[in-house]
């Protein structure tokens, strides 16, 4: 089981490195959209500060959607998916490896870049680690929910739009607690509950999403 996970991790990392322009695309989208808001809203520091957590989180969510349709699409087209489904090990093992690499190349860069952009919103430096932390804690859940959507819409015409419609409503709780934690810190109240709920959501997603994903993938190759 470990060998399957390691082999898949290695394969996906090699592919992510060779197709790195895809990674840069999602990250650039995030950077550009976060930069747009201050231009549209104007330079009122108080207003910008109050919308910053929400803007960063919503943009992170949209950026995570960009690369999702490609998560299983190539494997379906070249026949790799059917071969992977013939593995004697549980399919959730390689699905988890794929999702982990996808998060590593889409979620992590966004979380690391978010504090750098916070200067545009006049956020206090004290909350920047928390902003990155909530993103690191919440984006795995977004990727896992997104993976179910990607598997369900595999091979469907205009699947990308359908994927967004499926995934965005499910991502609302993550958005509430992720942005809420930063807002609580800005308001000077405890944000521990927000983080705990984000973490719990993450664990629930790790426990359930891969199975849903595998079921959807089996349907897709039928």
């Amino acid at each position: 089981m470990g060998a399957v996970f390691a082999a898949m991790l290695r394969r996906e990392l090699a592919l992510a490195w060779r197709g790195r322009t895809d990674v840069l695309l999602a990250l650039s989208f995030f950077v550009v959209v976060v930069c747009l808001f201050p231009f549209g809203i104007g330079p009122e520091a108080n207003q910008l500060r109050s919308i910053a957590p929400g803007v960063v989180w919503v943009t992170a969510l949209l950026a995570s959607l960009l690369a999702l349709p490609r998560l299983f699409e190539h494997d379906l087209r070249d026949g790799t998916l059917e071969q992977l489904l013939l593995s004697p090990e549980p399919a959730v093992v390689w699905v988890l490896a794929k999702v982990a690499v996808h998060w590593l190349v889409t979620g992590v860069p966004v979380a690391l870049f978010a504090p750098l952009l916070a200067g545009l919103y006049d956020l206090q430096p004290e909350v920047l680690p928390l902003l990155a932390g909530t993103l690191l804690l919440g984006t795995p859940t977004l990727t896992l929910i997104g993976a179910i959507g990607a598997a369900l819409t595999l091979g469907v015409r205009s699947g990308a739009v359908l994927l967004a419609l499926l995934v965005l409503p499910l991502a609302v709780p993550v958005l509430i607690f992720g942005a809420g934690a930063v807002e609580a810190a800005l308001g000077g109240v405890s944000y521990a509950a927000h983080l705990a709920l984000l973490g719990a959501g993450g664990f629930a997603a790790v426990a359930l999403a891969p199975w849903a994903c595998v079921a959807a993938l089996r349907l897709a190759v039928q």
Binding site: D78, G79, Q83
Partner: peptide, 10 residues
């Protein structure tokens, strides 16, 4: 299968 299951970038 009739699809080769071979990735072009690898």
């Amino acid at each position: 299968g009739h699809l080769p299951a071979v990735h072009e970038l690898l």
